[in-house]
C-alpha cells in the first residue's frame, strides 16, 4: 500500500539559509535554496522536484546529485529518507548520439 501524503500539511515558513546559493545539481546548476523552496511550493518527492527544477535531468541523469537532492528534501520535509520514493531511471543508460541511436545494426556471425 502506498504511503498517503497529504500536501496540505504545514511545513512552516521557508527560512533562508547561508548556503542557499550552493549548487547541488551541477549539470543543471540548481541551488540548494531552489530545492528547499520547491519543497515549500508543494514538491514533496524527488520526482516532483526533478520535474519542477530539472535536478537530475542533465547528462549524468542524477548520478551525482541524486543523494544530495534527496537529503535536502528529506530535511526540509522533516521526514525520514525511507519515506521518499526513489527517482525513476530510464533508457539510455548513457547519453547516445542521435545518429548512433538511429543506426540499428544486425549482429554479425553465425545465427
Amino acid at each position: 500500500m502506498r504511503k498517503i501524503n497529504d500536501r496540505s500539511r504545514d511545513l512552516g515558513a521557508f527560512v533562508p539559509a547561508d548556503d542557499d546559493q550552493m549548487i547541488i545539481c551541477r549539470c543543471e546548476e540548481i541551488t540548494k535554496g531552489e530545492i528547499r523552496q520547491a519543497v515549500h511550493d508543494g514538491m514533496f518527492t524527488l520526482t516532483e522536484v526533478r520535474r519542477y527544477l530539472r535536478t537530475g535531468m542533465g547528462l549524468c541523469q542524477g548520478q551525482t546529485c541524486g543523494k544530495l537532492v534527496k537529503g535536502i528534501i528529506v530535511r526540509e520535509l522533516g521526514t525520514a529518507p525511507a519515506e521518499l520514493e526513489p527517482a525513476f531511471s530510464r533508457v539510455p543508460m548513457r547519453p547516445i548520439e542521435m545518429k548512433v541511436f538511429a543506426n540499428e545494426q544486425e549482429v554479425q556471425g553465425d545465427e
Partner: peptide, 23 residues
C-alpha cells in the same frame, strides 16, 4: 560496448561504436 537498456523479454540494446545492436 555500452548497454543502453534492458527491455521486455530479456532483450538488451548495446551501443558499439556508431551502431546499436539488439541481443
Amino acid at each position: 560496448a555500452t548497454v543502453a537498456g534492458l527491455f521486455q523479454d530479456k532483450e538488451i540494446t548495446v551501443r558499439i561504436n556508431d551502431g546499436i545492436y539488439h541481443y
